[in-house]
């Protein structure tokens, strides 16, 4: 009887042990939820308003020295990108009366035509310009030569900021909205460019605006924030005839602002 009990106990332990091991599996467990690939959008409530009073940290000034307007376009429409930038630009809404030659090496007009509301894009607006004769591709012969002809403008006059109608390309926002696919914004703006003596052409263009949030500059008491605007234009729409670069020109505006 003792022997029978032992055998039975061993059999029971064996069967129970097998059951324990066999049940200890994840075979029928539901698979864990897949990692979300959706873009996580988080926006703050920063508000940045333009100003010119130095020392007032509530007023944000355009940091032209640390900003840039870059462009790129495939060389001969087939090659790698030909790139360049504009040396002179500003964040100002140029009215007709302001479109003059300014004898200065500094910013000719205040860069105050903008406002940025991180969480209220409808309130965000900006206007800006570039001086077309200030194009810089790193090739002096091209910048002061064929491109000046292509843009229908005049050469740079030292110590003068040329904001005449034939030398500026301007943008002015008409609407700013949240981008559903990213933490950026979709900006619709008017792009106006008068090439030479021809008529000024205004085209509505859609671009993408990114906000680089306000951060304290290390070692200082002032902060800096950035705005990056990316868009494309078709140069042929504005009467530019040039076979060296493709019709589609990509433009990236990197604008930094500080509250010094």
């Amino acid at each position: 009887m003792k022997r029978f009990n032992k055998i039975l106990m061993i059999a029971l332990i064996f069967i129970s042990g097998y059951g324990l091991v066999a049940s200890c599996t994840h075979k029928n467990d539901p698979l864990p939820a897949s990692v979300s690939t959706a873009v996580k959008i988080s926006r703050g409530t920063h508000v940045h308003l333009a100003g010119v009073v130095l020392g007032d940290t509530s007023q944000w000034k355009f940091d032209k020295v640390h900003s840039a307007v870059n462009w790129s376009s495939p060389f001969l429409e087939v090659g790698a990108d030909l790139t360049g930038k504009f040396n002179q630009f500003g964040v100002a809404d140029l009215k007709d009366a302001m479109m003059l030659n300014y004898i200065t090496t500094k910013q000719p007009v205040p860069d105050t035509s903008w406002a940025f509301y991180e969480n209220e894009p409808a309130k965000t607006h900006f206007a800006g310009y570039i001086q077309t004769n200030q194009v810089n591709t790193g090739e002096p012969g091209r910048d002061g030569g064929c491109l000046i002809t292509t843009f229908g403008t005049t050469k740079i006059v030292a110590g003068t900021q040329n904001l005449t109608a034939a030398n500026v390309a301007r943008i002015k926002t008409t609407s700013v909205a949240f981008d559903a696919a990213s933490s950026g914004y979709i900006v619709t703006f008017d792009f106006t460019w008068q090439v030479g003596t021809g008529p000024a052409v205004t085209q509505s263009i859609v671009g993408k605006l990114s906000y680089i949030p306000e951060t304290l500059v290390p070692g200082t008491t002032n902060s800096e924030f950035g705005l990056k605007l990316e868009f494309q234009i078709n140069k042929a729409d504005f009467g530019i005839i040039n076979t060296e670069v493709a019709d589609k020109v990509s433009i990236v505006v990197n604008a930094n602002f500080n509250n010094k």
């Binding site: 003792k2 009990n5 032992k6 039975l8 106990m9 029971l12 332990i13 129970s16």
Partner: peptide, 13 residues
């Protein structure tokens, strides 16, 4: 119960 039973009987033996 079966395992408890055999276990107790094992102890007693």
């Amino acid at each position: 119960y079966a395992l408890v039973y055999t276990g107790v009987l094992f102890l007693s033996g």
